[in-house]
Each structure stands twice: as C-alpha cells, then as structure tokens.
Amino acid sequence: MSVALTEETPADADAGAVLSDRLVGWVLTVGGLVGALAAFVLTVEKTALLKNPAYVPSCSINPVLSCGSIMSTGQAEAFGFANPLIGLVTFPVVAATGAAVLGRVRLPRWWWLALQAGAVFGVGFVHWLFFQSLYRIGALCPYCMVVWVVMVVLFTYTTLYNLDRGHLPAPRRPVDALVRVHSAVPTLWLLILAVLIGVQFWHYWRTLL
C-alpha cells in the first residue's frame, strides 16, 4: 500500500480520480488492440471469401453464428469498401493513444476531441450494423460482435474521460455520478444489446436448450 502511494502520487496528475489516466490508458490500449485484431481477421476472411466464394469462414459456426452470410451482404460494404478496413486503420490509433496515456504523455485537447469524434462515429456505425444484423440479415458474426463490444467500451470510456477532464463541457454533478459507476455503463449497455439478441433469435436458442 505505502509503496504504491509513494510510487503513484508524485507523477500522477489525477491521483485520487476514479477515472485515472492509468485506467483509461489501459482501456484504450487493450480495446484498440482487440478491435484491430478483429478487423484484421475479418479482412483476412473477407479476402479468402473473395478468392473462393465457396470458402467457409472460421466464424461460420451455425446458421445464427455465421459471418459468411453476413460478409456477402451489401451492409458489409456500407461505404463502398469492406467495413473492417475502417477498423483496420482506426483501432491502431486508439491503441497508440492509450499507450501514450500510459506513458504519461499529455495529449492536447484537440487530440481528445478527434478521438471523441471517431468514437461517436464508430459507436453509431456499430449500432447501425447491429440493427442490420439482427433485423435485416438475421445472423450474427462473432468477430463483428467483438467489434461491437470493443466500440461500446471505447466510446464509454473516451466520453467519460473527456467529460471528466473538461475536454467536453458538461455539468459536474451528472458527470461525477456517471464516472463513479463507469464500468456499469458499458455493462448495462451491452446487456441490453444481449437481451435484444436473445429475443430476436429466441426461436433458434430455444432449439438448443
């Protein structure tokens, strides 16, 4: 305890903060890396599918959990190119940001606002894909779901951090309340998504019980 105290206190500008730089740094680093890995795997699978239309991707486990059917839909190329390319170039930036924060680099406000803009776009896009996947295509792609989870977590922590550190203007009281239960926010969020999945594919899960 006392060792931690002497080690942490002098350098950490936010000592005592619930949402410490260290926590956010780790979330961004790990989230960015996991997201990048998922995007990379999806790109590789997509390439294999293009080379051989009969290729069965490693994530096509059963009729509901299947990325082969999803990858060949129009929604998989929402902007005219394969969606995972977006994650492939953006998630590493998130990971690098996290690493910089862990290295105690003080990033300018515009950097955080840019990260926030990316997070807003990412989380919005991911929810559009969630809707398409559930209610239009009727299948789930496991690697894509990894990206959904990562995006919700990254968005939550980026936003809470920016609110807490004043990069984004907001009344103190609600921000403090949210920050105090920071990990409950993405947990509840993801549980709601999980319930929606459970309801939509109930017919299918039912046959497995």
Partner: peptide
Amino acid sequence: DDRHGAQARRPARDTRK
C-alpha cells in the same frame, strides 16, 4: 491492481466518494 491504486490514492485527494 487499479483498485489498490485508487484506495491508496484516496487520502491524497479527499474530494470524491
């Protein structure tokens, strides 16, 4: 690990619950 950190640091700045 982080929880230890938070608890250790709390006395330093007492403004938070």
